[in-house]
Nucleic acid binder design. Structure first.
Lengths: 251, 251
DNA sequence: ACCTGAACACCGTTCAAGT
DNA sequence: ACCTGAACACCGTTCAAGT
């Protein structure tokens, strides 16, 4: 904010311009030509600060996700923190649909790593460890990223919501066709009118219920054990925060 | 197989050539020039049978997923069928990593719709209906597609497995760094040496446990109710089968 | 109706040349 | 060291012209 002269190109300024383009014009509008035009510089200049377009997209995604993760540091209840964390990611993707696609492109990118670390910390605070922890962490991360991608793709496809209704109609219709059972018919119509946000949270709760249940491999009462390890959760949430600057050209 | 002259171009032959290119040379090698070269035809010829590259990719993904769904029609036990169905999808994506990315690109494509219909049918056979059914269906589809994308991206990234180990090392190390707790250390090391396939199935079981639990919103014993509605499952599995030819140019 | 292939309007990335 | 912008090696898609 302080230096607003055309001082110098920097990774931060490039990422900032990238996010602006993606938010306002969509993923297809992101070209290095568009970035250099917005920064009024030469085509090859950005390659001094960024390895390539993939690096640029990963940095932009982290620029959106990083602050979301940092914002959930305060909560001490693991379940509530997990709901807040996952909902925060969902809403970030709702507001920046291109992030949904980007997070599913590379499990090695910083933003995905940060999500893993934060959710992993919360699950540990819930009493999980060992294989149960990695299995639960992977399941939750995969669910969140999958839901993010599907929701984002739906949002991208239907800026005016018409095509989206069209899609849900079609899915509901085809689904209903395969069975005359009134229960199936009812479900199909629910599919048409559901709220993505509520449905996303319902999915998070299904996973939390599955993790708490015995068949998923955890001892007994998971909520009670969490008391002394709850401290790591708030610590872990802060780690992913200012990561927008990390991982510059090493890819 | 029978007509192997250069008889005529058709949507099927084009999709077949597309799958071959994607399997043997990867997603970056799929250009319409590569497709027309393999079919020794003119550049614009394929646009008589296919709307655009997106349509081509969706058809190719359905060409892989369709037979997988059709192959699980026999099972009468919903839980076992869900495990077989999801594992089949996972293994198809393991063998064709480009499918993992493609399924996450558009929730409206046939392959995703077919997955929804099949899993939805099985969940209904499990005794779910109404909001519980759509919530569970969305959660399971999102988990499967998310896991698929992450696994596929990992597989694509590391043909030789070296970069993959590198990634897991890095994640484990960063994760372990945030806490000295031996349980976290242990989990981090497990992260390094886990089996993607087993972890995927563990996630499916977490989900199934979550559905069975009361807190996810289902009545009581879900397995017992399924007896009379189990019939629709085998029917539903057949619907997605020969869909490679459907949805030609309407997009 | 189906096919051809040149043409169009773009891409990401590189690199000699400048400051 | 950082930046420029022309050049390179590509893309997906269209469309007049052929059969």
């Amino acid at each position: 904010m302080t230096p607003r002269r055309s001082d110098a190109l920097s990774r931060e300024r490039i990422v900032e311009a990238t996010i602006q383009i993606l938010d306002s014009e969509g993923e297809s509008a992101l070209t290095v030509r568009a970035v250099t035009a917005r920064l009024s510089t030469g085509r090859g200049a950005i390659y001094h600060h960024v390895t390539n377009k993939d690096d640029l997209l990963a940095a932009a995604a982290d620029g959106v996700i990083g602050p979301v993760l940092a914002g959930t540091a305060g909560d001490d209840d693991p379940r509530r923190a997990i709901r807040a964390l996952t909902l925060g990611i969902f809403e970030a993707i709702d507001g920046h649909p291109w992030v949904g696609a980007q997070l599913n492109r590379d499990p090695m990118q910083i933003a995905v790593l940060d999500i893993w670390k934060n959710l992993g910390g919360r699950l540990h605070a819930l009493g999980l460890s060992g294989k149960a922890l990695t299995d639960a962490g992977a399941a939750l991360v995969n669910y969140v990223l999958g839901a993010a991608a599907q929701h984002a793709a739906g949002a991208r496809r239907a800026a005016d919501d018409a095509a989206r209704q069209d899609y849900l109609d079609r899915l509901a219709h085809e689904w209903a066709q395969q069975d005359a059972d009134p229960l199936v018919q009812e479900s199909a119509s629910l599919l048409r009118d559901h709220d993505d946000r509520a449905q996303f949270l319902a999915g998070v709760d299904i996973f939390l219920a599955g993790i708490a249940s015995d068949s998923a491999g955890i001892a007994s009462d998971s909520a009670g054990i969490a008391s002394d390890s709850a401290g790591i959760a708030s610590k872990s949430a802060g780690i992913g925060s200012k990561s927008a600057g990390i991982g510059s050209k090493s890819g």
